[in-house]
């Protein structure tokens, strides 16, 4: 077992009540807007602490409310791709991709070389010297994916990586993910609404649902994740 998450998190009016176990697999996260899919990814990434419960990844406890233990995002080694481009606008594509490994032990030159290799492997080596603003949406997402994987993350989180792309770019990116995701170690979570994405890319689906709200005037909405 790779990811074990049992707990709750409160975000405004939303309560996420999660109890899942996931192995080395690609897991689709589905559900209507506002149901807490992104919140769920943020909990896994360490951008949001749990309010109750425990998160364990590869046998290591990353969040344990009872024992006041919380490993912040920068120490979790996760790869995350957001819905649309969050490449750093003031860095080139190459510098963006090399950034996560610059702080590791390897030399600057090694880091750059590794970044170039990774870009080339993903068919975007020719973009290395460009700035993010010069890229198309599809190219940006490709580069964001390369960046998220360069550190050999123990868990990959993709927040609707295809939804901002047009049809062609979407197909290309889906093919890229198809080749990548199954071969990567660790658990891969991908938030998507698209049945085709779920069918082609994912081993299984976790559908977020909200039971009918309780008493009249109850301000909170509980999302159940099992």
């Amino acid at each position: 077992m790779s990811v074990l998450l049992k707990g709750t998190v409160h975000q405004g009016r939303l309560i996420l009540d999660i109890d899942i176990v996931a192995g080395d697999e690609v897991v689709a996260i589905s559900g209507v807007n506002g149901i807490g899919k992104t919140t769920f990814l943020r909990v896994l990434a360490g951008l949001l602490p749990l309010d109750t419960g425990i998160l364990q990844v590869n046998g290591k406890v990353l969040d344990d409310v009872d024992h006041q233990l919380f490993v912040p995002a920068h120490m979790r080694n996760v790869g995350m791709v957001f819905q649309d481009n969050v490449l750093l606008p003031f860095l080139s594509v190459l510098e963006n991709v090399a950034y996560p490994i610059l702080s590791t032990a390897m030399s600057r030159q090694q880091a750059r070389q590794q970044a170039i290799d990774a870009l080339t492997d993903h068919g975007v080596g020719h973009l290395a010297s460009m700035k993010p603003a010069q890229l198309s949406g599809g190219q940006q997402q490709r580069v964001a994916l390369v960046r998220s994987l360069i550190n050999k993350p123990q868990m990959v989180l993709l927040d609707e990586p295809l939804s901002a792309l047009d049809a062609d770019a979407r197909r290309d990116m889906r093919n890229l993910l198809l080749g990548q995701l199954k071969t990567l170690p660790g658990t891969k979570f991908i938030v998507t609404h698209d049945r085709l994405d779920i069918a082609e890319l994912c081993d299984r689906e976790i559908a977020f649902t909200q039971p009918q709200s309780g008493a009249l005037g109850d301000e909170t909405q509980t999302t159940i994740v099992r």
Binding site: L47, A73, H74, M75, V86, L88, Y99, N151
Partner: peptide, 14 residues
Amino acid sequence: DPRFEESAATMGLG
């Protein structure tokens, strides 16, 4: 956009 800093955090920057 706070997501720039959040993505930097997931990139390993303290």
